[in-house]
Design a protein around this nucleic acid. Structure first.
Lengths: 331, 331
DNA sequence: GTGAAAGCGCTAACAG
DNA sequence: CTGTTAGCGCTTTCAC
């Protein structure tokens, strides 16, 4: 159990006061260059590490961000997390990950913990059950920025960063129109979810405005398996759709399973397009054409907003990450 | 900016000393039940939260574990992380996630950070480039347990938790033999990786011992795309294999892409089996038969070893998570 | 049973 | 330029 090196020890070894050593280490202008070098050299040599707990106790600045997500087994959040972590490290911050398991009570516990730990700032994707956002507001009022991302509250009094859900659906619809598809099977998640309503609206509005003659068959499913069943049934009967739209990865997976039982080929026999972060689409051959919703880009955006808040930007802002179409060859 | 509640404030409000309040809050036997209740009630009422930095400064116990992984976009590590986090929370520990990006230098920085932050213990999957494990040893010698998992150093002087790599390959081989496959195309990652050598050895030994007559065609690939190319070529020429083995998810993905260009069907025309954590196999229809390597189980195992170390178990130990065969219908 | 006091390692006035 | 001092909030002897 090697004893730890403290400022005091350094000071003793150098015959200086603790204060001087402390200042030398952080390039305080008062300190002579000679002393500074002497201190820094020894510190380096004996591998001095400041105790972050002491620093925090003194300064109440943890240099640590929290990210709270409702679920961890989700690629979108993973890329968001890596993205933020990447930036944070550059700025000398750490990142702690918390998972609320879609449980509003647990989310509240986590929030409490974040308060205890004096987190510098918080990124949070709320659970569907989160109704009481007042505790977030309270935290924010104590000077801890809260950036909501992906799953955000309705009120625009919060800082929010989202992907362009509506536009993603619009882009997908336009791609279908451009490929002259006439009979589109469009599969959406449950209409309960606000993201579904947003995407559905954009999707339908685009067809209505730009290609009203296209037949759009909207179906709602609750998971991958129900998506598979819907498609298995549709593909077995004339008239067949000439393209399928999937509003999420989960749906895409189900559709692909159904397709694998048939002899139909993309894009010759039927086209397919999805909204996705891009991982699942590249599992197939040809790769699936998709409209990208990038957790990575969202992370960058949210982080920059965080830094802005930290340097004083106090008004709430809603930021949107743009979507783009990635051609895979399946449409 | 609401002012924070400290022990001192509580003490003042109750007309008690700080020491008494502190003791009351942690059920010290010296304190009378009456006082204790009085203290606890008020603490609850005004939402007192101890400052973890002060506690740590005093006790040098961060109650925090670190998990260091070489890459975050990996399902296996995700399930490991959730698994550990789940346990840790129950024991009142937090978990910080760090990603070394397969960079040994960064890994070292992270390690330094962990030392600074006085992490209670560390779980680490090392990068392929990590040669210098002495800094881990040094950390361990200061009383911070280091549990290596998945990617572990060669020396058995470390605490290591691994999946049963060899056995996984053996199980897959046995499944192929049992299905009376006679011409197996077996695709492995680069022979550079120790995991490849381990699996290859188990795989070949099983055929040699139990079914020497089976033709096993071993191929090494470097990624999903090369796997796809190999299979695309093999499937185009007689004599065709009657089964394919994939040692990893990445290979499986490539193989499936190749298959999607053919009219071959699993399991009728050809069989397929993989080693996987189970996510990718269930993307296809029929789902792919695989030998499971579970990050979740590995997490539980590693955590229990961590707790053992914390309560004094000092000798190094190598733990193995068993593998099982999951039938998907593709073999 | 309760309180006084020391100190964990560090920062930041305030003095010289 | 450098040192002295007073805490940050908490735990923990040691007294009473």
């Amino acid at each position: 159990m090697k004893e730890t090196i403290t400022l005091k020890k350094l000071a003793e070894m150098l015959n200086l006061s603790i204060a001087t050593v402390s200042r030398a280490l952080k390039d305080h202008p008062d300190i002579s260059e000679q002393t500074r070098n002497r201190v820094k050299e020894l510190a380096e040599l004996i591998d001095y590490n400041p105790n972050p707990y002491a620093i925090n106790l003194r300064t109440s600045n943890s240099k640590e961000f929290a990210i709270i997500v409702p679920i961890l087994s989700n690629r979108f959040y993973h890329s968001f997390i890596s993205s933020v972590e990447e930036e944070a490290r550059q700025y000398g911050y750490s990142v702690s990950i918390y998972c609320s398991n879609d449980d509003a009570a647990l989310e509240n516990d986590i929030l409490k913990r974040c308060r205890q730990k004096r987190m510098t700032g918080i990124f949070v994707a709320i659970t569907p059950a989160t109704t009481d956002t007042v505790s977030f507001k309270r935290l924010e009022s104590t000077g801890v920025p809260v950036i909501f991302f992906d799953k955000v509250p309705d009120q625009d009094t919060y800082n929010r960063a989202c992907v362009a859900d509506k536009k993603a659906a619009v882009l997908a619809a336009q791609a279908l129109i451009q490929k002259k598809k006439k009979r589109v099977l469009a599969i959406f998640d449950s209409i309960q979810m606000s993201i579904t309503r947003t995407r559905l609206e954009g999707f339908l509005a685009t067809f209505a405005a730009e290609a009203p003659e296209v037949q759009v068959d909207i179906r709602h499913v609750v998971n991958s398996e129900t998506a598979r069943q819907v498609v298995a049934q549709v593909l077995g009967h004339e008239p067949m759709p000439d393209a399928i739209f999937c509003m999420s990865d989960e749906i895409l997976i189900g559709v692909m399973k159904a397709q694998q039982r048939t002899t139909l080929r993309f894009p010759d026999d039927i086209g397919i397009i999805a909204i996705s972060d891009g991982f699942i689409p590249q599992l197939y051959f040809p790769e699936i054409t998709y409209v990208e919703t990038s957790g990575y880009k969202l992370g960058k955006l949210a982080f920059s907003r965080m830094m802005a808040c930290l340097s004083g930007s106090s008004f709430a802002q809603t930021l949107i990450v743009d979507s783009i179409l990635i051609e895979g060859g399946s449409l």
